[in-house]
Amino acid sequence: MSDERDDELVTQWMRELAALPIEAPPLPDAAYIWWKAQLLKQWDTQRTVLAPLEWGERVQAAAGLAGAAVLLILSSSPLAGVATGVLLLTAALAAAWWRESLG
C-alpha cells in the first residue's frame, strides 16, 4: 500500500520534473554531427593505414643505430679489417641495388 502511494507520488513528481523546460543553447545540427563523425572516421582509417608504416620506420631507425654500434665496436677492435670489409661490401651492394633500380 505504502509502495503504491510512493509510486504515485514519485510518478507525478517525475512527470513534472520532465516537463520543465531546459535552459540551454539549441542542439547542434544533425548534419554537423554527421560531418564531424565522418571526418573522425577518416582520421581513424588514416591512423590504421599509417600505423604499420610508422612502426616500420621505427624498426628501420633502430636497425640503423644497431648497425652503427656494431661497426663502431668492430672498428676499435683487432677486427677493424673485417669491419672495413663489411662496410665496403654493404656500400657495394647498396650501389648495385641503386644502379639496378635506376636502370
Binding site: I33, W34, A37, Q38
Partner: peptide, 9 residues
Amino acid sequence: QDAYLRLLR
C-alpha cells in the same frame, strides 16, 4: 554530442 559521435564512429 560525444555520445552521437561515438555511435557514428
